[in-house]
């Protein structure tokens, strides 16, 4: 089980703040996320998800990472401002 949190535009687009997942791979997580968003009436695409940095336990992770039980996964938009 991993805890997944969404920040930035993906959170606004999907309407999802946080969920618990049994996904073992990034691909599985993407599919689950799209499904959960669709249940809320929101359509998000792979492009939306890939526009976020993926952090696992605070470290930027690769798409090939395999999740471990208890991992904290974060999707975060890249940003700028002042």
């Amino acid at each position: 089980m991993v805890t997944v949190k969404l920040f930035g535009l993906l959170r606004l687009d999907s309407g999802i703040k946080e969920f618990v997942s049994e996904a073992a791979t990034v691909k599985e997580l993407y599919e689950e996320l799209k499904q959960l968003a669709a249940e809320r009436g929101n359509i998000i695409t792979d492009k939306n998800i890939k526009s976020c940095a993926l952090l696992v336990n605070g470290q930027q992770a690769d798409k090939n990472i395999k999740f471990k039980d208890g991992d904290q996964v974060i999707f975060m938009s890249m940003v700028a401002g002042g």
């Binding site: 920040f7 930035g8 535009l9 606004l12 975060m76 938009s77 940003v79 700028a80 401002g81 002042g82």
Partner: peptide, 15 residues
Amino acid sequence: GNQLPRLGTAGLVSS
């Protein structure tokens, strides 16, 4: 066109 209009500069806090 997306981040700043929708979240403003406040959108930086989480990142």
